[in-house]
């Protein structure tokens, strides 16, 4: 890859903040523990063997994977964009021979490179060895990787699109929090979408958000089809167009303040 070196350089520069990364790494296993104890008590006190078709082990696997997918695909660059605009750093990015989106993309790849050893590997090890998460077949693992990659690209494009609003709104903190909460629920981060009432579920199925988390996890369980693949590509295309459109307008009305 032509830009591989850029991603690596950004990742190594980000390592200047070592302690922050250690805390980042510790945070995730902690989250699994919380989910684990929550669901163990739900199954135990309810005397349940299955919840919405999930056994306890399925459920734990779901949450372990949700953390892995989250770490690999979640993109939160809106506030970075906001800060770049306010501080004037956007000007530096605009005088580089790549689009601002492209720069952020490789920066993001750089961070994901760090996420693999720091979050993905420890979370999986802990999940398999301690909490009893289930293994899967090799083809399912490949599908899981494919859908995770799609989720990452889509997440990235959505983050850039929402972030571009900072060109007009200046402060987008509340908007970003709203987005985070909404995505968490709509993508199946809070609980598997099967737990929703049928009507609401049907509505969620029409939205693109389930491809961010729920569908990659389902791929791990071997429960996806070609239609998921095609629809997710359609949504990627759609978010790409949104990103292109909003950034073209953003560049045009940029006032270049902060310097």
């Amino acid at each position: 890859m032509k830009r591989w070196g850029l991603a690596k350089a950004i990742a190594s520069n980000a390592m200047a903040y070592k302690l922050d990364f250690v805390l980042w790494a510790i945070l995730h296993p902690l989250q699994i523990a919380v989910y684990y104890f929550l669901w163990v008590s739900v199954y135990k006190y309810g005397g349940l063997e299955y919840v919405a078709g999930y056994s306890l082990n399925n459920m734990i696997t779901y949450y372990v994977l949700s953390i892995v997918v989250g770490a690999l695909t979640w993109v939160g660059i809106e506030e970075e964009i906001e800060e770049d605009i306010v501080s004037g750093n956007m000007i530096q990015k605009m005088t580089k021979p790549m689009s601002v989106g492209e720069y952020f993309f490789f920066e993001n790849i750089g961070y994901k490179l760090l996420a693999v050893p720091l979050i993905v590997v420890p979370t999986l090890l802990l999940g398999y060895l301690l909490f009893g998460a289930q293994l899967t077949s090799f083809p399912n693992l490949l599908l899981f990787s494919l859908f995770s990659l799609i989720a990452m690209v889509m997440n990235f494009l959505l983050s850039l699109t929402v972030g571009a609003l900072a060109f007009w709104m200046k402060k987008i903190h509340s908007l970003v929090r709203l987005k985070r909460t909404a995505f968490f629920l709509l993508s199946g981060g809070l609980f598997p979408l099967e737990l929703l009432p049928t009507g609401v579920r049907a509505l969620f199925d029409l939205l693109p958000f389930k491809y961010l988390l729920y569908v990659p996890i389902k791929a791990y369980f071997g429960e996806v089809g070609v239609e998921h693949f095609l629809l997710s590509l359609g949504w990627v295309l759609f978010t790409y167009l949104c990103y292109k459109l909003i950034w073209r307008r953003a560049y045009k009305q940029f006032k270049g303040v902060g310097v």
Partner: peptide
């Protein structure tokens, strides 16, 4: 831009130079 640095604040300039080499 004299009032705006493009060096990474917490890193030696050499690291920024290498980043620019990639960019």
């Amino acid at each position: 831009f004299g009032q705006k640095s493009q060096l990474w604040w917490d890193l030696p300039p050499l690291d920024t130079f290498h980043l620019l080499k990639e960019i």
